[in-house]
Amino acid sequence: MRGRRALYALLALLIMLVPLGLLSPDPAWGEWEESFYEKALGFVPEGIAKASGWHAPLPDYSVPGLGEVGGYYLSALLGVGVIAALFWLIGRGLKRGRG
């Protein structure tokens, strides 16, 4: 029980500190904008330029209408909320399956 509360507290603390994750202006190695490839290679590889697929509702942890920090906060809360909701559903299913 104590361990559980401690983990929740740690989670809350990290969510509060999450704007620190924005301190780096640099992307991860390999996760560059297309302009990087243009500059480094003189062209953008076709597959990368034409990458289609999923359009995430909140790309790069940004929320329309909110600033960078506000969007990052809300994204952290939302992501944790979705994971909590999924586990809540799993737990409910588990109880039903066993009860």
């Binding site: 929740y8 989670l11 301190l23 202006p25 640099d26 992501g79 944790v80 909590a84 586990f87 588990l94």
Partner: peptide, 27 residues
């Protein structure tokens, strides 16, 4: 379940902490 759930949430949040390193990238 509560432990696995909170450690999963922690994993999600930890990945949001981009650490800048020399050489112009982060991780």
């Amino acid at each position: 379940l509560p432990y696995i759930a909170s450690l999963t949430a922690l994993s999600f949040v930890i990945m949001m902490f981009n650490i800048p390193i020399p050489g112009g990238t982060s991780g």
